[in-house]
Amino acid sequence: MASLDRPGELLIEAIRLTVNGDTHDLGVPSHYTLLEALRYVLGLTGPKQGCDKGDCGACTVLLDGVPTLSCILPVQEAIGKEVTTIEGLAAPDAPHALQDAFDLTGGAQCGFCTSGILMSAAALLAANRSPTRLEIREALAGNLCRCTGYTKIYEAIELAAAALREERMPAELKGS
């Protein structure tokens, strides 16, 4: 095994990752986190690096449907699992109800925490189509937003939930 001390001799591991439905055979440095593999190897820059130590939630992706901090997850932990990033949230022909709702209600200001927040919210709505305000707040407790005061984010998630229940787009409900 090569030493980890020297950058030129980093141990490269061949791994198979399934991300947003695509299967990739990749060579990644063995110390990589899932976030590094997504951003640096696959070019999926939707998940963000805000703190690189699992504090802010901007890197949140779904691992077999479970919101996961990709910046502190060794990439090997994702092998054999379904990784979903913000880029894989929507169907090809339309935005996800959450994306449309965030746009309608002003749930994204700077947008940097947004990808992580949407993944946490998507997992919530997958399990619960009628979340209470408190359930939404609990689902987002691991995602820091510094712009909105969270208010418009709650509105967006509630609007998206209503749209999903009625199988319509948020814009149809809100009329914009």
Binding site: R39, T45, E87, D103
Partner: peptide
Amino acid sequence: RRLRRTDGLAKSSGRAIFTDDIS
């Protein structure tokens, strides 16, 4: 009027390119 932002969907779909996203 209560309108959408010009960059709202780009941000909520992870497509907005921030500085660290540039390589």
